[in-house]
Simulated assay, not measured.
Amino acid sequence: MEYTNLSKQIEFIKEVDKLKYILRKTKLFNSDRNENDAEHSWHLALMALVLAGHANVEVDLLKVIKMLLIHDIVEIDAGDTFIYDNQKSHTNTEEERKAAQRIFGLLPDQQATELIAIWEEFEEQQTDEAKFARAMDRLEPLLQNTSNKGGTWNEFGVNYEKVYTKKQVIQQGSTVIWQYAEQLINESVEKGILTK
C-alpha cells in the first residue's frame, strides 16, 4: 500500500508540534505564565466558534477556524513578533512567507496549496472571514491583559494610544465586539492598569 500522502501529513503534524514551544509575550488569564502559540491558536478557534454570531456578516466558520489554527504556524521559523514591538513590524514579512512555503510545503500538494491560500487570506485581511479571524486575534490578548491588571502593557510600557490603535481593527470583524473591547480599554485607563 502507498503511504506517500500519509507520510507527508504525519511529517507536517510532527513539525507543527513545535508551535507549543513558541512563547508569546502575553500571559494566560490570571496567571504569570506566558501563553504559547498553540494555546493561543486553540483559544482563538474556540472563541470564533462561540462568538461567530457577533460577526458583522455571516462568515464561513470552518474557514475562520482554519485561519485561526494555522495563522501563527509560520512563527515556528520566523518567531513571534510582539504586536507592540517598536523595532520589527508585526505585519507579514518575507521571512514568514518563506516559513509558510516550507512548513505547509511538507503536506501533499493539494493540502499545501489550500493552507497557504488560507494563511495568505488571513494576512491580507480583505475577506469577511479574515476580518473576523483578526478580531479574535486582537481580542484575546486584550482579555488577557485586563485579567492580569495590565499584564504586558505595564511590563513593556504600552500606552492607551497604542492599544486603542491596534485593537480598533476588531470593528472590521465585529462592531459589537469592538464596542465591548473599547469599553474594556477605557475601563483599564480608569482602573489605572493602562496609561493615557
Rank of each mutant, 00 (worst) to 15 (best):
R102G: 09
K88C: 01
L106K: 11
L69Q: 06
K98I: 14
S89R: 02
F104G: 02
A100D: 01
T81D: 03
S89I: 00
L68P: 04
H71D: 06
I73S: 00
K98D: 12
G79N: 06
T93F: 01
Q110V: 14
N92F: 15
E96I: 10
V74M: 03
K98F: 12
H90P: 14
A78E: 06
L69N: 10
G105I: 07
T91L: 14
E94I: 15
G105P: 07
L68C: 06
D72L: 07
I70T: 11
I83F: 15
A99F: 04
D72T: 07
Q101W: 12
F104Y: 11
Q101G: 15
H90M: 15
D80K: 10
I83K: 12
D85E: 04
I103M: 04
K88W: 00
A100Q: 02
L107G: 06
G105N: 09
I76D: 08
A99C: 03
A78Y: 03
P108I: 03
D80W: 11
K98A: 12
L69W: 03
E75L: 01
Q110Y: 09
D77I: 02
E95Y: 05
Q87W: 01
K88I: 07
Q111G: 01
A99I: 02
Y84I: 04
I83P: 03
I83T: 14
T113H: 10
Q101V: 11
T91Q: 11
S89Q: 02
A99K: 01
A100G: 07
D80E: 13
D109I: 10
Q110L: 13
K88N: 03
A99M: 03
L68V: 06
L107K: 06
D80V: 07
E75T: 10
Q101T: 11
P108R: 00
D85R: 02
D109M: 08
A78I: 05
Y84T: 02
A78K: 04
G105L: 11
Q111E: 13
L106V: 05
A100I: 04
E96D: 12
K98Y: 12
H71A: 10
Q87V: 10
F82H: 11
R102L: 09
R97Q: 09
I103T: 06
F82N: 14
G79D: 05
I103V: 13
L106S: 04
E114I: 12
F82L: 07
K98C: 09
R97T: 09
G105F: 07
K88L: 02
A78D: 10
A100C: 10
L68A: 09
E114F: 13
N92M: 14
V74Q: 04
T81C: 09
I83M: 14
I76H: 05
T93G: 00
T91V: 12
Q87Y: 09
I76F: 07
L68S: 07
E95V: 14
F104R: 04
I73H: 02
E94K: 13
R102F: 13
S89T: 08
L68I: 06
L106P: 04
N86E: 15
K88G: 01
H71S: 12
R102Q: 13
K98R: 12
A112S: 14
R97D: 13
F82Y: 15
T81F: 00
I70H: 01
A112V: 01
Q87N: 13
G105M: 10
D109E: 14
Y84D: 08
L69D: 03
A100F: 03
Q110T: 10
H71E: 09
Q110F: 09
V74D: 13
L68T: 08
Q101A: 14
A112L: 00
P108Q: 00
Q101F: 13
R102N: 10
I70L: 11
